[in-house]
Amino acid sequence: MIAGLYRAGDSPLHRTRPGLKLLSLAIAGTALLALSSLWLAGAAMVLIFGLYCLAGFGLRTMIEQVRPAAFILAILAFAQLWLAGPSEALLFVTRFAVLILAAGLVTLTTRTSDLVTALEVALSPLSRFGLNVSGISLAISLAIRFIPAIGQILSELREAQIARGRKPTVLTLVVPMIIRLLKMADSIAEAIDARS
């Protein structure tokens, strides 16, 4: 199993039901995109800071959340500055930062397994229309289990090629890797079918 981005805790936010958090995020996101006042965006930033503190996180966690998007946001903010002026650029950055922080907060305070369950519950009415919900659950749990296994196969292949004096490249690793996965698929599928 690979570790999710969830951070264990016992705050009111950790204890809120995943469905409610997702719904709040959807509403907050829609409201944020419609926000056109810098003061309101600033207030939203203060509010999200308060929520991070409530969940037991600090400024460092907040920076970690925004950092992956920082580069593209900086470029786009520069374009806004040039096109629409400084207050528009500041509004733009604040709005996106709050949105990313809000979405990140749901991920930080909700276990992956709880989100998967929420998804299954949300999809279950669609099984009446022919959606294979148990197949979806199976696919999710298989993929999560395959990630470390495939990582392991990959490092074995790499070591084997280095041992034979060859320099592994993406192509020389990916092709034997995929052929192995395709062969594995049959036996894994048989084992699953035999058990059910």
Partner: peptide, 15 residues
Amino acid sequence: MSTRDIVLIALFTAL
């Protein structure tokens, strides 16, 4: 969609 299809889908997700 067979079990094998589901396994293949999950394998390429993990890849």
